[in-house]
Design a binder for these strands. Structure first.
Length: 868
RNA sequence: GCGCCGGUAGCCCAACGGUAGGAGGCGACUGCCUUAGAAGCAGUUCAGUGCGGGUUCGAAUCCUGCUCGGCGCACCA
């Protein structure tokens, strides 16, 4: 073969430039054409892309290119989730300004993404830290305020006293601030909330409509929303002397059927009644502090220990005048759920049982398996919880005795409602979304605090409220708060002196609507309704499953909030969701236990040694690529060495996209060899095939026909695989076609039929691999004599005449075991098939004289002879 | 504890009620090519589908019990 090797270093930048010059991927609103909006979760600009990005963006890119080829008007944009803490950390640690740090990173990562050859519309690029983006976020927040979707309330936060900032739960490690190491305190702060809980039911119900979302994600969201049906009801409280208190105690329960098994009540340490009593009961304040201290993320050991503090109050049992339930403050009752108060039924709740055993409270079983003698049924140290399908019955429960659980629930609910002491209540676990962050590098919350007027939104004409650039990070706390003048302003209502809000938004807000902004990234309004009407919803959203709950739930909420305030007109922003797996790699360690980069490891026979020091290297588990374990492979190094197409091909090969893929050097080399093989095949096709544009000769038969069939079968299969996001299978089909081409080329058959088939199959081959290896495909297209861009070539259509056949091979089984196969005309009547099958020698032999009981015939597939 | 996903050749995987000479790739081995290597070419190797029951004419595929691995949720009353 006379060809030179394919050199991606030369071709890839050239074709990237050609696409840019042709403005090939700039999306234009065109109501006449069907649109396809493909989006990958936009990256945080950390400064360098990692393999996870390569995988994620390659998948989206294949879809964008494929959908474009089949005729869709494709929108495939890219942007930057550019606010957030790492920029501030860099400022603190290295003295760089968050803004320049961020924009430098964006520039670097943009170059890296471009080197992957992604079919992105860069003219729509947005960065969330840009005032031209966040001004709209501020505007919408003001609209949300007016629509009643915003609330300011005091809430408990994790406060780091050293850094003087609020920490998210995941930033609290063993009760200490993740950076300062200081003991984290629970503090009450006035915070801004978005009332996502108004949409609990709606967000839950609408999950059913998201049929193109992974079941797993829908389930996780449903659990997160956490709907439960129960009752809210009140107890009359009395003190030790029997004196009745004015206010009643309201509790929430889903097990009102077990009311006769109640033996105590428990309140959250933060319950208003507990706070009220704090001053009057010795030790209670200390108990509350204790609970607050281990509140955050103490693990299972602490969790197991149920503790309570008696409040010297008693709740009257609503149906048993003689029963008075002691009331406790307890560490296992959460203020944020239900009423922050419960009644304990130890026999049928493990937590209550643990508590009851610790404080020697009665344990009265009230539900037992059907047929059990109530007098004999007892509960030990394991609460009796009925499992699905159990036959159970109420015992020791007065007028409920003998009922099943659902009936008992009904009866109690009716009884309590009639007595006016309670009502049925649906509860949700989902809380309102706290969006205040005491940080600099985020979108300023556009409100003003005025002594006379209170909290006032900034006037829209005064937007955006921009971040000041002259800030310092030399002392703890929020730089906006320390800024000498930024927060000083005047009240939009009274004109008097006022202060700006110094909190900024949670960055999840930025990412809750960026997909809508991409429809009209330069519009003067947040979203141009006409553009959004055409482009939204996102047809295919791709990202990591780690965003299954927060980002995706917030975005679903935002779409509704934006629709309510007239900024959008749809509820579900993502029609289809795909969650791709991680990129994993083997880990390496020195004998001393230091992690070693894969790039520094060389193989020597069966052993591994350090490339630089020669030390012995031990191999460890295959784990998610992470900086801390150093099992990372730098995409830039791979692209430098093999080119983007090889990297793209590798991350799509073999492993199904939803599963974790193991990065291996041998696998990459295999992908690299394949690029070279494609190159040779195409050169050979150009030499041995017909010239471009040749029409189908009259007679194509034999091997030429087989090659045509292979090509059309490949077209059909790859098309289906790409529609279904089965990239690994599509790639296998391309390999198959490569094999078919290779063997056909070896025949050196100069017939017109074969020459035509080579041309046809060769062009199909290049077109089919183009979404995966776009640069190589362009170069091959040139070799095949074309002047046009591959990206403009329509997707080929399989000829049904070539993908089907008049004859089929039918497998022949005797008693379920394969004994022979037979070629028969397609669609042959069952009786004829039976006849043909029974005549086979192999069948007769297998039957061995036994009578035939019946013959099962699956048309055109299989025949099974069943003997007596 | 609850839930979800997955166990198919040495490895990654396909088939998802109908022929496991496995679609494909990686690896290994043999031969050809080469001064040699790399690359390339031709070919070979290897499992009966984690284990036990069941349904069926027929099960990797459906049901069921177990087992191993991964992930998510977890004091939500």
């Amino acid at each position: 073969m006379s060809t030179e090797r394919y050199n991606p270093r030369d071709t890839e930048p050239r074709w990237q430039q050609a696409w840019t010059d042709a403005r090939a991927f700039e999306a234009r609103h065109d109501p006449a054409r069907p649109k396809y909006y493909v989006l990958e979760m936009f990256p945080y600009p950390s400064g360098r892309i990692h393999m996870g990005h390569v995988r994620n963006y390659t998948m989206g890119d294949v879809l964008a290119r494929f959908r474009r080829a089949v005729g869709y008007n494709v929108l495939h944009p890219m942007g930057w989730d550019a606010f957030g803490m790492p920029a501030e950390n860099a400022a603190i640690e290295r003295g760089v300004h968050p803004k320049s740090w961020t924009y430098d990173n964006i520039a670097a990562m943009r170059d890296q993404l471009k080197s992957l050859g992604l079919a992105l519309d860069w003219s729509r690029e947005i960065a969330t830290c840009d005032p031209s983006y966040y001004r709209h976020e501020q505007e919408m927040f003001i609209d949300f305020m007016k629509a009643g979707l915003v609330e300011r309330k005091v809430s408990m936060v994790n406060w780091d006293p050293v850094d003087q900032t609020v920490l998210a739960n995941e930033q609290v490690i063993d009760g200490r601030g993740w950076r300062s190491g200081a003991l984290v305190e629970k503090r009450e702060l006035a915070q801004w909330f978005l009332k996502i809980s108004d949409y609990s039911e709606e967000l839950l119900k609408a999950l059913d409509g998201l049929t193109n979302w992974p079941e797993k994600v829908r389930l996780m969201q449903a659990n997160w929303i956490g709907r439960s049906e129960g009752m809210r009801f009140s107890f009359v409280l009395e003190d030790e002397t029997g004196k009745v208190r004015d206010e009643k105690l309201t509790v929430y329960t889903t097990r009102h059927d077990t009311i006769f098994g109640a033996s105590f009540c428990a309140l959250s340490a933060d319950h208003p009644l507990v706070r009220e009593l704090e001053g009057s009961i010795v030790g209670l304040a200390e108990f509350r502090r204790e609970v607050a201290a281990l509140g955050t993320s103490e693990e299972s050991i602490e969790r197991a220990e149920k503790k309570g503090f008696p409040l010297k109050l008693y709740a009257r049992h609503p149906f048993r005048p003689d029963v008075k339930l002691p009331v406790y403050a307890a560490n296992f009752v959460l203020m944020g759920y239900g009423e922050g108060a419960i009644f304990g039924c130890p026999a049928h709740d493990q937590r209550d049982l643990d508590f009851a055993r610790k404080y020697q409270l009665p344990v009265i079983p009230v539900v037992a398996p059907k047929g059990t003698d109530p007098a004999q049924f007892t509960v030990g140290n394991e609460a009796f919880l009925e499992k699905e399908g159990d036959q159970t019955v109420l015992i020791n429960s007065d007028f409920l005795d003998g009922m099943g659980v659902p009936e008992a629930k009904q009866t109690i609910a009716k009884r309590m409602e009639a007595l006016g002491i309670g009502e049925r209540k649906v509860n949700y676990r989902l809380r309102d979304w706290g969006v205040s962050r005491q940080r600099y590098w985020g979108c300023p919350i556009p409100v003003i605090h005025c002594i006379t007027c209170g909290v006032v939104p900034v006037r829209k004409q005064d937007l955006p409220v921009t971040l000041p650039e002259d800030v310092t990070f030399d002392r703890p706390g929020n730089p906006l708060m320390h800024h000498p003048s930024w927060k000083d302003t005047t009240c939009p209502t009274c004109g008097g002196k006022a202060k700006r809000e110094t909190d900024t938004f949670d960055t999840f807000i930025d990412s809750s609507w960026y997909f809508a902004r991409f429809c009209s990234p330069k519009a003067a309004v947040p979203v141009d309704r006409e553009e959004a009407k055409y482009w939204m919803a996102v047809d295919q959203y791709i990202g990591g499953v780690e965003h299954a709950i927060l980002h995706l739930l917030y975005s679903r909420f935002y779409a509704r909030a934006m629709t309510l305030t007239g900024h959008l007109d749809l509820k579900e922003p993502f029609a289809s969701l795909f969650t791709q797996g991680m990129v994993v790699h083997e880990t390496y360690k020195t004998e001393a236990g230091d992690w070693v980069l894969p790039a520094d490891v060389v193989r020597e026979g069966d052993a591994f040694v350090h490339a630089k020091t020669g030390e012995k290297i031990l191999t460890g588990g295959i784990e998610k690529m992470s900086k801390s374990k150093k099992n990372v492979v730098d995409p830039e190094a791979i692209i430098d060495r093999y080119g983007a197409d090889t990297a793209r091909w590798f991350v799509l090969s073999d492993t199904p996209p939803e599963r974790d893929i193991e990065w291996t050097e041998t696998g990459v080399e295999g992908a690299w060899r394949f690029t070279q093989r494609v190159w040779r095949i195409v050169a050979d096709v150009q030499q041995k095939g017909a010239v471009k544009g040749t029409v189908v000769p009259n007679a194509v038969a034999g091997e030429a026909l087989e090659l045509r069939r292979a090509a059309h079968l490949a077209i059909q299969a790859v098309t289906e695989d790409l529609y279904g996001l089965r990239f690994n299978r599509g790639i296998a089909r391309v390999y198959e076609l490569a094999n078919a081409l290779t063997s056909a080329l070896q025949k050196n058959d100069p017939s017109d039929g074969m020459r035509f088939a080579l041309r046809e199959a060769g062009e199909a081959f290049v077109t089919l691999l183009a979404p995966m290896m776009p640069h190589l495909a362009e170069e091959c297209w040139r070799v095949l004599g074309h002047e046009t861009l591959m990206v403009d070539r329509p997707w080929p259509k399989a000829d049904p005449a070539l993908t089907t056949s008049d004859e089929v091979t039918i497998a022949v089984q005797v008693n379920g075991k394969r004994r022979d196969e037979i070629r028969l005309p397609k669609g042959l009547p069952q009786a004829k098939v039976e006849q043909a099958v029974l005549a086979l020698d192999n069948v007769k032999r297998a039957l061995d004289g036994k009578p035939v009981r019946k013959v099962v015939v699956v048309p055109d597939r299989i025949a099974n002879v069943v003997s007596g």
